[in-house]
Amino acid sequence: MSKTATLKIWRGLDKTAGHFESFEVPYEPGQSVLDGLRWIRVHKDPTLAFRYSCINANACKECMMEIDGETIYACTTRLQPRTMTLEPLGKKILVRDLVTEIAPPQERLRLK
């Protein structure tokens, strides 16, 4: 039987009213957690929200999140054949699911 990774992902629009949802992802050695998240959107749930711009190149620095409690990029973290817990950055304003407001205030929409 082929191995799977389980991504246990925090979902929600409100920090106080979220829940965890688990997805089984096919595991191939060498993949990143970002690969797993992209697989989920295509095969399971296209509404899952996370930031990324470059793909696994660690150039855009947008995919930072908390993986098993550690603040880290999803594109440089290896997917592993076990349960991995993914949460939005705890110290940032939540937008949705794994997306937080990471832009400096002057680079956000501000209309007078």
Partner: peptide, 12 residues
């Protein structure tokens, strides 16, 4: 549509 100065082809 992404973050300012982080996406697009330039950073790549």
């Amino acid at each position: 549509r992404s973050l300012i100065g982080r996406g697009g082809a330039t950073v790549m």
